[in-house]
Simulated scan of single mutants.
Amino acid sequence: MTGSADTRKLALVVIDMINTYDHEDAELLEPSARRVVPVLVDLIGRAREADVPVIYANDNFGSWRSHHGELVETALAGSHAELIEPIKPDDDSLFVVKARHSIFYETPLSYLLWKLGVRHVVLCGQVTEQCVLYSALDAHIRHLGVTVPDDAVASIHPHLAEAALEMMERNMGARVVAAKAVDFGPPSR
C-alpha cells in the first residue's frame, strides 16, 4: 500500500495454512505450499513488526469440537510439520475457524475486522483458485480493499490460480502484487 489513498487500517489474513495435507489433492497442493511458506514467513514477520493484525482463518478439518490450538497441534503432529512450524500463529495472532471456502461465510470475521477498524485485507495462503478467490469476492462485497500477494498463495491447479488472480484483479478491484510490494507501513505504536 503506497500513497495517501492506502492509509486505511490493514490486516493480514492467512488462509488455511494450518493444514495436515491429508486430503484429496494434497499431493498437488503440497509443492506449491512449500514454495510459498518462505514468502509467508517474511510477510507475517513484516506485518507483526508493523503491528498489523495477523488473522488466521482456517478450516476445522470437519472436527466440530476443535479449537484453534488443537488445529495447530494436529497439523504440527502431521507429516508436513515443516510447512506449519515457520508460520504458526503466535500469542498475538487472531484465529477464526471456518467450515466453508470463504473466510467470511458464517464466521465472526466481518465483526472482528469492524472492531479492529480494518478497511483493507491482505489475503495469503491456500488455495488460490478456491478459498482465496471466494474470500476476495466476499471481502469486495463488504467494501473492503483487497490485496493478494501472488507469490504468497498456493494452488492445486496453476492455470486456475492464474485465472483466479486475474478475476480478483479485474472483477473485484484487488491489488495483485508480489509480497515484497506489500507495505504495512510503520508500527502504529
Score class of each variant (00 low, 15 high):
Ser4Asn: 14
Ser4Lys: 15
Ser4Phe: 14
Ala5Phe: 13
Ala11Val: 02
Leu12Val: 03
Met17Arg: 00
Met17Val: 03
Ile18Asp: 00
Asn19Leu: 02
Asn19Thr: 03
Asn19Cys: 05
Tyr21Leu: 11
Asp22His: 15
Leu28Asn: 12
Leu28Ile: 04
Glu30Trp: 05
Ala33Gly: 04
Arg35Trp: 01
Val37Glu: 00
Pro38Ala: 01
Leu40Gln: 03
Val41His: 01
Asp42Tyr: 07
Leu43Cys: 11
Ile44Thr: 05
Gly45Tyr: 09
Gly45Ile: 12
Pro53Glu: 11
Pro53Cys: 14
Tyr56Gln: 01
Asn58Thr: 11
Asn60Leu: 10
Arg65Lys: 10
Gly69Asn: 10
Leu71Thr: 06
Val72Ile: 15
Val72Asp: 04
Thr74Pro: 02
Thr74Val: 11
Ala75Arg: 08
Leu76Arg: 15
Ala77Val: 12
Ser79Met: 13
Ser79Leu: 10
His80Cys: 08
His80Gly: 04
Ala81Asp: 11
Ile84Val: 15
Ile84Lys: 00
Pro86Thr: 01
Ile87Asn: 00
Asp91Lys: 13
Asp91Trp: 04
Asp91Phe: 03
Asp92Phe: 13
Ser93Lys: 03
Leu94Ile: 12
Val97Met: 13
Val97Glu: 11
Val97Ser: 12
Lys98Leu: 10
Ala99Ile: 04
Arg100Ser: 09
Ser102Thr: 06
Ser102Trp: 01
Ser102Cys: 06
Ile103Gly: 15
Phe104Lys: 00
Glu106Cys: 12
Pro108Lys: 09
Leu109Met: 13
Tyr111Cys: 10
Leu112Cys: 09
Leu112Gly: 09
Leu113Ser: 06
Lys115Gln: 15
Leu116Thr: 11
Leu116Cys: 10
Arg119Pro: 02
Arg119Thr: 13
Arg119Gly: 15
His120Leu: 08
Leu123Cys: 13
Cys124Asp: 07
Gly125Val: 10
Val127Gly: 06
Thr128Phe: 05
Thr128Tyr: 03
Cys131Asn: 05
Cys131Thr: 08
Cys131Phe: 06
Tyr134Val: 14
Ala136Cys: 14
His140Phe: 14
Gly145Phe: 05
Val146Ser: 01
Val148Trp: 04
Asp150Ile: 02
Asp151His: 11
Leu160Tyr: 13
Ala161Ser: 06
Ala161Pro: 00
Ala163Met: 07
Ala163Tyr: 02
Met167Arg: 14
Met168Phe: 01
Glu169Tyr: 00
Glu169Ile: 02
Glu169Asp: 10
Glu169Thr: 04
Gly173Phe: 02
Ala174Thr: 04
Ala174Asn: 02
Arg175Ala: 10
Val177Phe: 08
Lys180Gly: 11
Ala181His: 12
Ala181Trp: 07
Val182Pro: 04
Val182Leu: 10
Pro187Arg: 04
